[in-house]
Design a protein around this nucleic acid. Structure first.
Lengths: 150, 150
DNA sequence: CAGAATCCGTGGAGATACTG
DNA sequence: CAGTATCTCCACGGATTCTG
């Protein structure tokens, strides 16, 4: 349905990582090209869209923190060391306009603003965990490969 | 262990989305702040690291395509309409140096180069699918919220 | 065919100062 | 406390040209 959504077939032993390399590229032996991806469809692919939203510098840290409990603005500012006020505001506003975070203002003096995940935001924690698990499981391997190829 | 890896506790009904709002922010009622995140530790968090690698403009499209079968350079160039040669090369090189993609050169004339996922790259397809499923399931909701708040 | 090299525009992001 | 307003810098990424 969507470009990045069709789960690719599990590689069968002996075909994907072929050991019987005869010097001919696999793509020449098995020459069935998928039709080119129309640019318009790529732009509208929700997976790409969501991925790009979620993957800026601060979004995931904030979503993860807010997954623990609600935070006030300056609590987040202190918790996420290194983030600027500007980026904290911007990221929270984006999350809010995407419906992942809600913002509640309490009429106190000085003002108190609280941020929390919406149910939609909570639902995102699940797939993020899967990716987080993968990262934790494989980051050592990635690091070693990276070092070897420098 | 890592900042973005501890799966947050499942929200209990009536506590997370409290309906008995007495005008006092939840973070003032339940005031147990996690210790601030040291900047050094944040930088080294593998989850953040991996997310940032994976989330540039072309990586996911390429990983997904290569999940189907191996591709030659210009096959990818045609398949991913809109990508420049420069970015295709750069993205593939990064994927290679991270151990997610391997590059094989065949001594033909003109040269033939084939790209395929490594086992590590294949293992990434799984968690990506989870995120893709989430995106497909919720992108309409996000879009409607987004429109409402513009 | 599979790139390398170069130039260049744009937006993501930090730093700083100010305010209701 | 919770922001807004500016200025600035640089990395991302596109276009073009050239080559073994």
């Amino acid at each position: 349905m969507f470009i990045l959504h069709r789960r690719p077939a599990e590689p069968k032993e002996g075909t994907f990582m072929s050991t019987t390399n005869t010097g001919v590229p696999a793509s020449l032996r098995d020459h069935q090209l998928p039709s080119p991806i129309p640019i318009g469809e790529y732009e509208r692919c929700p997976v790409t869209d969501v991925l790009r939203r979620v993957s800026d510098k601060w979004t995931l840290v904030l979503v993860t923190l807010l997954g623990r409990h609600p935070y006030r603005f300056n609590e987040l500012h202190r918790a996420v060391e290194g983030i600027s006020q500007r980026m904290l505001t911007r990221t929270l506003r984006t999350l809010e306009s995407d419906g992942l975070v809600e913002r509640e203002v309490f009429p106190t003096l000085p003002p108190t603003v609280e941020y929390r995940l919406t149910p939609l935001g909570v639902s995102l924690l699940e797939p993020l965990s899967a990716l987080a698990d993968w990262a934790v499981d494989h980051h050592a391997e990635i690091a070693s490969v990276r070092q070897r190829t420098i």
